[in-house]
Amino acid sequence: HNLTITQGKLFFHYNPKLCLSEIHKMEEVSGTKGRQERNDIALKTNGDQASCENELLKFSYIRTSFDKILLRWEPYWPPDFRDLLGFMLFYKEAPYQNVTEFDGQDACGSNSWTVVDIDPPLRSNDPKSQNHPGWLMRGLKPWTQYAIFVKTLVTFSDERRTYGAKSDIIYVQTDATNPSVPLDPISVSNSSSQIILKWKPPSDPNGNITHYLVFWERQAEDSELFELDYCLKGLKLPSRTWSPPFESEDSQKHNQSEYEDSAGECCSCPKTDSQILKELEESSFRKTFEDYLHNVVFVPRKTSSGTGAEDPRPSRKRRSLGDVGNVTVAVPTVAAFPNTSSTSVPTSPEEHRPFEKVVNKESLVISGLRHFTGYRIELQACNQDTPEERCSVAAYVSARTMPEAKADDIVGPVTHEIFENNVVHLMWQEPKEPNGLIVLYEVSYRRYGDEELHLCVSRKHFALERGCRLRGLSPGNYSVRIRATSLAGNGSWTEPTYFYVTDYLDVPSNIA
């Protein structure tokens, strides 16, 4: 807008934040220059609390790290170098490059900038070799853009010569660093050979998330399962459950009422301010606690030095998902009996873990797994792929695949051998790939016309006998059925096997 004052003059007093240069501009645009008398524009009460600059400061050096910015700028000295009290560095987070010096300023003089007072450097006698002032900004957020400017702080001049310097606002972004852990990993099994893994992005990506790394490792069953005799009275049979499938998407929606109208769909109840505040506090606490764990609990591995020492970490090797089922080394339970199943799973520490690289999504279907087997899954978020990966501390989750139908069934015939004193040795093959492992066998036998009897055969007993022995049988026709019990439950009964026990007292003698 054009402003013209045809008559009258300007009068400025007691404006401590208004620089004289701005008042002189007002004289020019209003056409009143030359009308004012000496005392109409006070030299001592206008701009006496402001830094009124008329020179431009330029930054000469900028260096960044993930949490620091090192700045240096060209030296500046007023005509009387004693008038320079120091520099004021202003900075704040700036997602967009549209910041002005006066953003967030209120009537009390406060604003949204963080201000650092910096002492002037030592003055050199040689004007050509003056030290460049600077400042190291610490405690910054990774991968965050900051708006920065600097200006001088000078003393009051009796001659009211307006001098000083100020830089333009520059924008500097800190470097990326390792992201925080992925949030809320959930693993479920939808079949006997697959596990579905879902997660949420890290709360602090500290860069642009480029991919996720998912490692999985087959877990050995508890050692007590191999040692305890679950045929003993009072000892509860062990059981394991597989990871249940995901709930429906509708039930997972946030901010939804727990109660549904019987007449149909209901609208979600909005969260109160107290609920939102509580969630923010919980989120802040979780982030602080995660940072504490990362800094205190997890110790970084030592990389190899120039002395030739090897990095103890196993090298990563990509495998196809079809090879995942046989990740671990199978060892027989008892070496003397080769027909026992290889369900003991000690994992070799030198073995390469299978892994998958996930790009542009937060889910993965891990296939080719062994049925009813526990897996430990390790999830890392990465925001750099080359020249070397920059990934987060791992988040861990466990899951067990679903049982395989008929995996616990005894394959092959049940054979028998009759000894003296009416002892019958029953023999059968253990299931080759049971659900988890076989903890015991149930032997059901009966003599024709009598009630059915049951015998429990422990895992250890089966390994020693290759089956079991029935003792003290009365003469007669017998039928026997056997079924295995694994961590997933009972298998199917075998087809009945028949044998006849004679009275050993009636056996004919070869003595003449």
Score class of each variant (00 low, 15 high):
G207C: 03
G449Q: 07
G306I: 10
I418Q: 03
S284F: 06
E281D: 11
F285L: 04
H425V: 15
A399H: 02
S392P: 01
S268A: 15
F246R: 11
K432Q: 03
D409V: 04
L232H: 07
R481D: 00
S248W: 13
K361C: 07
T373P: 00
Q256E: 07
H211C: 04
D385F: 07
S305H: 11
D506Y: 10
S474M: 09
G374C: 03
K287T: 04
D409R: 06
Y230R: 09
F372L: 05
H294R: 01
Y292G: 03
G436A: 14
E442K: 04
T333G: 15
R353M: 13
S239G: 14
S251G: 05
L228T: 05
K432L: 09
L228I: 13
E356T: 12
V299Y: 14
L213H: 14
G374K: 09
L321R: 07
G325K: 06
E452F: 15
K460N: 05
T272V: 04
F226P: 12
I366F: 15
N422R: 09
E260M: 13
P413T: 08
N326V: 14
Y445A: 14
A220G: 15
S474E: 11
S243A: 08
S248R: 12
S479P: 00
Y375Q: 04
R286E: 01
I410S: 10
E417G: 12
V327H: 09
H211I: 13
E356N: 14
T494W: 01
N510P: 12
R376T: 10
L473G: 02
H294L: 15
V439C: 12
R218S: 12
F285E: 02
L505C: 04
E221P: 06
R240N: 10
Q380H: 15
Y448E: 15
F289V: 04
P349D: 12
N206D: 01
H461R: 10
F372E: 03
S367W: 12
L280A: 15
D409A: 07
S257Q: 13
D250R: 06
E224H: 13
T303I: 15
P238Q: 13
D291P: 02
I410P: 13
T415Q: 12
L232M: 08
L470S: 01
Q384R: 08
R483T: 02
L232P: 08
R376Q: 04
V414H: 06
V296S: 14
T386W: 15
P332H: 10
W216Q: 13
F298K: 02
T288E: 04
F462L: 06
R319V: 05
L505F: 11
K406P: 05
E227K: 05
H352N: 15
